[in-house]
C-alpha cells in the first residue's frame, strides 16, 4: 500500500467547492480551549483574522522560531515531527474521557522532555540551553505534588533514557550516571539539570567517536584490536585530557596538538615496533577505558 502515491487529505479536497465553514465550529478544534474565542471568530471576516482566531498564526510563529533556533538540516522533516509531537500532546489525543494513569503521564512527560532536548545539537549552545530550560519546565510543572520542582528520581530516569537511546553500552555509561545522579527525593535545581544533560550528551558523542576510533584499530578478520596499539591510543588520549585541566585557550591548543596525527601516529608506531604477544583488546574494553578517562573529569553532583 505504501508504495503507491497517496495524496494528503487536502489535495483530495482541492476540487471541492470552497465553502466557508462556520468559523465558530473550526475554532472548537484548535485544542487551545480558550473560552470566548469562538464568539470572536464568528465575527471575523478575513482569512487572516480566521487564522489568528483559531491559533494558526501563533502556532506557525512558534514553529518557525524553533526552526531558526535549531537550524535543522532537513527543516521540512523537522516541522513534520514538531507538529506530530504537538498533536500527540493535545488533549484530543490524550484520551479525553478517562485521565491517563500516573505512570503513563510520567512517560509522556519524559518523552516530551527528550524531544525538546534533542531539537538542537549541544554544540549550538544557546538553542540547547533554551531547550534544556523548556524540558526542565515540562518535567517539573505538572507534578501531582503541591510544590513544583523536579525530583531526583525523574532526573535519573531521564538520564538513563538518554543513555539507552544513545546506544552506548550500559557498563560504559554507568560510572557517569553514578557520578551525576541525584537522590530520588532530592529536588534538582536547573543548573544541576543543565550540567547533567550536557555532560550526558557530550559523553554519548565521545563514546560514539571512540567507537569510530576503535573500528580503525580493529583487525577486520578477528574483530579485536592489538592491546599495545589500543593502549598507546588510550594513553595519548589521557595525556591530552590531562593537559586540558585548565580552561585557558592555550591548553586547548596543547590538547589538540597532542592528539594530532603525528604524535598519535608516533605512539602507535612505538607500540607496533615493541610488539609482544598479548591478549587482544575488545571493543567493550576499549570503550570502557576511553569513557573512564572522560568520566574522571566530570565533577560529581553534591
Amino acid at each position: 500500500m505504501d508504495v503507491l502515491p497517496v495524496p494528503l487529505p487536502s489535495a483530495k479536497m482541492a476540487a471541492v467547492e470552497k465553502r466557508r465553514l462556520p468559523v465558530a465550529q473550526a475554532a472548537n478544534f484548535t485544542g487551545s480551549g480558550r473560552p470566548g474565542v469562538s464568539r470572536a471568530a464568528a465575527t471575523a471576516e478575513s482569512e487572516e483574522d480566521f487564522l489568528r482566531q483559531v491559533g494558526v498564526t501563533e502556532m506557525l510563529r512558534a514553529a518557525l522560531l524553533k526552526v531558526l533556533e535549531a537550524r535543522p538540516e532537513e527543516p521540512i522533516a523537522f516541522l513534520a515531527h514538531y507538529f506530530e509531537n504537538m498533536d500527540l500532546r493535545s488533549p484530543a489525543n490524550g484520551g479525553a474521557g478517562e485521565p491517563p494513569g500516573q505512570l503513563l503521564l510520567q512517560q509522556q512527560r519524559l518523552g516530551r522532555a527528550l524531544w525538546h532536548l534533542r531539537l538542537a545539537h549541544h554544540s549550538q549552545r544557546t538553542a540547547f540551553n533554551n531547550n534544556v530550560g523548556v524540558a526542565y519546565e515540562c518535567l517539573s510543572a505538572s507534578g501531582r505534588k503541591k510544590k513544583p520542582g523536579l525530583d531526583g528520581r525523574t532526573y535519573s530516569e531521564l538520564l538513563k533514557r538518554i543513555c539507552r537511546d544513545g546506544e552506548a553500552p550500559e557498563e560504559v555509561v554507568a560510572p557517569l550516571l553514578r557520578k551525576i545522579q541525584c537522590r530520588d527525593h532530592e529536588a534538582v535545581p536547573l543548573a544541576v539539570f543543565r550540567a547533567g544533560m550536557l555532560t550526558c550528551f557530550v559523553l554519548l558523542e565521545f563514546v560514539a567517536r571512540a567507537g569510530a576510533l576503535y573500528r580503525l584499530l580493529e583487525d577486520p578478520g578477528l574483530a579485536v584490536a592489538d592491546r599495545h596499539v589500543g593502549q598507546a591510543v588510550l594513553d595519548t588520549l589521557e595525556g591530552a585530557l590531562q593537559a586540558s585541566d585548565d580552561t585557558t585557550p592555550a591548553r586547548y591548543l596543547e590538547a589538540g596538538s597532542r592528539l594530532g596525527p603525528d604524535s598519535l601516529a608516533l605512539a602507535m608506531d612505538r607500540a607496533l615496533v615493541a610488539r609482544r604477544p598479548s591478549t587482544p583488546m575488545t571493543r567493550e574494553e576499549f570503550l570502557e577505558k576511553a569513557a573512564a578517562l572522560f568520566i574522571a573529569k566530570v565533577k560529581p553532583v553534591g
Binding site: L8, P9, S10, A11, M13, A14, V16, K18, R19, R20, L21, Q25, A26, N28, F29, T30, G31, E47, F50, L51, V54, G55, V56, M59, F83, E84, M86, D87, S90, A92
Partner: peptide
C-alpha cells in the same frame, strides 16, 4: 491548503 480545507481541520485539528 488549510484555508481551502477548513472542514478537514474541524475534523482532525490543526496540528
Amino acid at each position: 491548503q488549510l484555508l481551502e480545507n477548513k472542514e478537514d481541520i474541524s475534523q482532525y485539528g490543526i496540528a
